[in-house]
């Protein structure tokens, strides 16, 4: 009989004690998972011919365009976009690099600020450019990224020639800051 009473008591204990402790599922509204991804982007190693026309005359601007459709899947979560751009200039000339976003009709819709200034004969310079939160939606309308390189006139009137062995280097990466609020 003792064992029977013991089992009965154990059952009563198990059944009649509280089944839950306090939980609050509304906390999910405050949940934030902040995740950061690094992505490699474009790079370039431009030599003198890239700044000369067919007659080997210096040009003041050169340009390239990349088509890169941006997925809208994570639109609700992307909070900040930060570009790291490292430049190195062996030319005796100053360059200005402008990155412009174009829509599917190749119409410019946004210019990354500030325009990157690459001084003459400069070692590696790191520039960090951020797309502010209020502008971030523009990337979802972007179909093309344009890279414009402008040569500023030299102080002494010298120009780039075909025999110039210098290079202009650019490296870049993007840091994407997500906040996965809606788990």
């Amino acid at each position: 009989m003792k064992i029977t009473k013991f089992i009965a008591s154990a059952l009563v204990f198990l059944v009649f004690q509280s089944c839950t402790k306090e939980v609050d599922f509304n906390q999910l509204d405050d949940a934030n998972i902040n995740t950061t991804y690094n992505s490699t982007l474009v790079y370039l190693n431009l030599t003198a011919p890239k700044f000369l026309d067919q007659f080997n005359q210096e040009i003041t601007e050169t340009f390239d365009l990349i088509e890169a459709p941006i997925s809208t899947d994570y639109k609700a979560y992307l909070e900040k976009l930060e570009f790291t751009i490292i430049t190195k200039n062996g030319f005796n000339r100053t360059f200005r690099i402008s990155i412009i976003f174009y829509d599917k009709y190749k119409q410019p819709i946004y210019e990354l600020q500030p325009i990157i200034n690459v001084p003459e004969n400069s070692p590696e310079i790191t520039t960090i450019v951020e797309i502010p939160k209020e502008d971030i939606s523009v990337i979802y309308n972007t179909q093309y990224f344009g890279f414009h390189i402008f040569l500023t006139p030299s102080d002494d009137g010298s120009v780039i020639t075909i025999n110039d062995i210098a290079t202009l280097n650019l490296k870049s990466s993007a840091k994407l800051y997500f906040n996965f609020r809606k788990i």
Binding site: F63, D64, I66, E67, P69
Partner: peptide, 19 residues
């Protein structure tokens, strides 16, 4: 492996980098 897209700045032979 991907180190990035190398831009060639060749207006006479534009590349379709994405494709």
């Amino acid at each position: 492996e991907l180190e990035g897209l190398q831009l060639n700045f060749d207006p006479n032979n534009p590349e379709d980098y994405w494709t």
